[in-house]
Nucleic acid binder design. Structure first.
Lengths: 64, 64
DNA sequence: CGATAATGTCAAGTTTGCTTGACATTAATT
DNA sequence: AATTAATGTCAAGCAAACTTGACATTATCG
């Protein structure tokens, strides 16, 4: 799964740490997702979409 | 998190087993999600939304 | 009623998401 | 150049998602 987290975060002027706090996960989790080490849980994906005022599938692109 | 899986599945005339196969998980996983034992992964949520031609947040309702 | 399909549930095990803590690298500021 | 902020990454551990296998209960149907 690909994602546009880093871009969205930049557009909204958040550091990884600030974003982590805003969605209540650790900074390492945000970093790992940006680096596509793993995918977020559904709850985290929802929180991120809401924070950035967009749809989950605008952030997370899944093919197949 | 609440969800409308059971209703959607009924509307589309799927058995739990058929749905499980359609989204490539076990029947028990579908059952557990319907019974709200746990939430699906993001990938599974996306597959379900696509199969039912709807949005993730139309199926999975998260508050807070 | 009796058979079969569908659903519910439990246990045990694997994988994945996420945590804390630590430290190294890179970018920004002074 | 030196300090600080931000990011990258690793390890160890816990929790949640998901698996297989088994069996019990509830619907459906001949």
């Amino acid at each position: 799964m690909k994602n546009k987290l880093k871009v969205l975060r930049a557009e909204h002027n958040y550091t990884q740490d600030q974003l982590a706090k805003a969605v209540e996960v650790s900074r390492q989790t945000i970093n790992a997702i940006e680096k596509e080490k793993f995918d977020p849980s559904l709850v985290l994906a929802i929180k991120l979409a809401r924070l950035f005022n967009t749809e989950i599938e605008e952030i997370f692109i899944y093919s197949e």
